[in-house]
Computed example of a mutant assay.
Amino acid sequence: MAVLTDILVAPATDAPAIISEWPNSKRWPSLQTTGLDWLVLADLAEALGQAALARSIENLEASSSADETKGPWVYVLPTELRDHIASIASIDLSTIAEAWSDKEEAKARGLTAQDAQRLLLEIQPLAVSARDGQKPMLLWVSM
């Protein structure tokens, strides 16, 4: 079973509305993906050289859920992750993508360096928009 995972730019207070409206509503800027959960994002933090940030992502608690055991869930991602993604220099993208795809969870999910680079290119504009708008990035997860 595939895990649906979307990254949205929205105030944290919108989490309950996202739970009730997503994915049918398109009022929040987003990236719709599959399998890009908090563990794969923790691997990204590690690839960015941020081990403490990776641990904090691994320990995220859902800020909102429709059902605690069945989901969907919304997680507020740390602003440090947003800011690191927003500030990746284009010259560093392939190196970070390679490092990310080589991390344990990302590798187990079949994330290739090419996939990782494509995801970074898609996530980065969201991260820049979120940073510039002083909003967090939220992770929506559904089984």
Rank of each mutant, 00 (worst) to 15 (best):
M1V: 06
L4C: 04
T5P: 01
T5V: 03
T5Q: 01
L8C: 08
V9R: 00
V9E: 00
T13A: 14
D14S: 13
D14G: 03
P16F: 08
I19M: 07
N24Y: 14
K26V: 06
W28N: 03
P29V: 04
P29Y: 10
L31E: 08
L31I: 08
L36G: 02
D37V: 09
L39P: 02
D43Y: 15
D43N: 15
A45I: 09
E46N: 07
L48N: 01
G49S: 10
A52W: 09
A52H: 11
L53P: 03
R55K: 12
N59S: 13
W73N: 01
Y75D: 01
V76G: 04
P78Q: 09
L81C: 11
R82L: 12
D83R: 05
H84R: 15
S90K: 10
I91C: 04
L93A: 06
L93E: 06
S94A: 12
S94L: 03
E98Q: 10
D102P: 03
K103P: 06
E105D: 07
E105F: 11
A108M: 10
G110H: 11
R118P: 00
R118A: 14
R118G: 03
L120M: 11
Q124V: 08
Q124E: 12
P125S: 09
P125G: 03
L126V: 03
L126A: 06
S129W: 07
R131H: 01
D132K: 14
K135D: 01
M137F: 10
M143W: 14
